[in-house]
Write a protein that binds this DNA or RNA. Structure first.
Lengths: 314, 314
DNA sequence: ATCCCGCCATGCTCTCGCGGCATGGCTGGC
DNA sequence: GCCAGCCATGCCGCGAGAGCATGGCGGGAT
């Protein structure tokens, strides 16, 4: 009952002739004759009547033919489905990402991925690093984009980490600011500036880990969204800290300065998968899209990278 | 993608372990490992994640598993169906028979066949020999019970003939008839008796071929049915010719005498199938039932058989 | 009527697939 | 730190299966 034998059987049934079937199958007549004989011995049924001019299905042969075609069709379907998964014309990709990454990096990667592989169902869930790792281990996500401070190496052996970019911290200042022409500034140079914070809580979770503990910015205005924050800066109300990943496009009315590495610990951004678990083709391909999206952001992919050149207008 | 490999694959997926699957399959671990590796090479997909404690299906593995189970189930169904056809728990049997045979012979065979194999769908169609042969060749019947006069040998090479009985012609006479004690009579001894015919037409088709052309019976009464015919005979209205096959049970109130072979050509009754065409198990088995039914009728299965002992009451 | 041709079955040979045996690498638990 | 269990792989032997050749058989053409 091997599919090979069933194919031969189907061909013989279609042609009504062993010799003709052998020709189209590129086999010798004897091989096909033996296959049929073996199938008849295995099933204990006479499948064909041997007529003087070829063969004809018996009732038992017709019975088997239906099953044989169903089996062969299903095997083809299996091959097609696996090929679709491999060729990324089907399947799904579940991405997890930390909040800053969903601003531009991951969406852009998803966009190019989707246009390249429209058949793959995409899902994106935002979360913090511990939760994302949890999802990965539980099998609820295929890949997670997460960040880790360089002094907190996230060396967990359970994950494979693919380095994407370094999340540098930028200082947004008005075009008219005295430091607007600088590429890099030190925190102490901003000691007298008014800072525009996000929410008090967000500022804590986002910046506390990266800024030196002794730096206490003077906070005048709280603006919950990055857009509002940058608007305040552009209006000359103060300066703001903003992770480079959160910048979607080069704002024309303000300057973005890199913070000196000694003042802010660089957080490395990774794509994480579960170690020892096979990367499905979709995940594998998505990492490429993440790489190009990261390169398109113009951020350094390693700590000694070049200057800040925010990404193109979207 | 051989079913063997799919079985191994399913077992490994169920056990989550190559070693455990190998144990239940009575294989060595290495054989199963190779099967999985070969399947992965063939499909171009990684089917399992190798964990430190066994293996776990990947997404592609789950994709294949559904198809594999469907294929294996369908193969089992095919085997079951073929076995059912072979064991006669399913299928159909289409019987054709000439009119006299449907009186007792064929119905009895069908009855015992049905009680032995209730799963087989039976159909019976009555017809004359030429039509029955037509049906056989056209594939509209699986077996045909027909009769042929011994001088018209029906030696067609296209059919396989299985001899069942010889259709002797009986003479029904009242118990009080002067010949009631005889076992065999000559036609000329009945020259003065009144004959009870079936329809004029039936008498022609049925008897003209078997009786000598110069015999002109004196017909007083026409009774269309065998029952009525025999009733008239029992009432003393005359005598009647009746093929032995049409006698369902020994009638207590009349005597059945065999006609001398020289007076009536014996018609041989066969079960015919198409020559060179395989006999399905149902047909093969039905021939046995026909044989026992024929034996149960108590008629000679060859011209030199013993006397008339009509079948048991049904 | 005879010959020939096409069809299917089968004995023989060889090759490759596949299973068993043994070993080696790896990881988690006592 | 050792051991036990799991999986992968080199090696070997057997059997399934394909090709080659032959033979039987029946139908159609000459």
């Amino acid at each position: 009952m091997q599919p090979h034998a069933l194919q031969v059987f189907r061909a013989v049934a279609e042609h009504g002739s062993i010799t003709a079937a052998a020709r189209t199958l590129r086999y010798t007549q004897s091989a096909v004759s033996r296959q049929i004989a073996a199938l008849e011995a295995e099933t204990g049924a006479i499948l064909f009547d041997r007529l003087p001019r070829g063969v004809a299905l018996t009732e038992q042969g017709r019975c088997l033919l239906g099953h044989a075609e169903a089996v062969l069709d299903r095997l083809d379907a299996a091959r097609r489905d696996l090929a679709a998964l491999r060729e990324l014309t089907a399947g799904r990709l579940r991405v997890g990402a930390f909040p800053t990454a969903v601003a531009a990096l991951v969406p852009r990667a998803l966009a190019t991925f989707r246009s390249a592989h429209p058949g793959v169902a995409l899902s994106l869930v935002e979360g913090l690093t511990p939760g994302l790792l949890e999802r990965l281990l539980a099998g609820d996500a295929d890949v997670a984009v997460l960040s880790a401070a360089s002094d907190q190496p996230l060396d967990d052996e359970r994950f494979d980490l693919h380095h994407l970019v370094d999340e540098v911290l930028l200082v947004a200042v008005p075009r008219t600011h005295r430091l607007a022409h600088r590429r890099t500034v030190r925190l102490r140079e901003l000691a007298d500036d008014a800072f525009i914070a996000g929410s008090a809580d967000a500022e804590k979770t986002l910046l506390r880990a990266t800024l030196p503990a002794d730096f206490r910015p003077r906070i005048d205005i709280v603006a919950a969204e990055w857009t509002g924050k940058l608007g305040c800066v552009a209006a000359g109300l103060g300066v703001a800290l903003i992770p480079a990943l959160a910048v979607r496009a080069a704002p024309p009315d303000l300057a973005l300065l890199r913070l000196h590495p000694d003042d802010a610990s660089v957080r490395r951004v990774f794509a994480a998968t579960v170690a020892g678990r096979s990367r499905p083709p979709a995940v594998h391909r998505f990492l490429d899209h993440l790489d190009t999206a990261a390169a398109g952001l113009g951020l350094p992919d390693h700590p000694s990278g070049s200057g800040v050149t925010p990404g193109n207008t979207n």
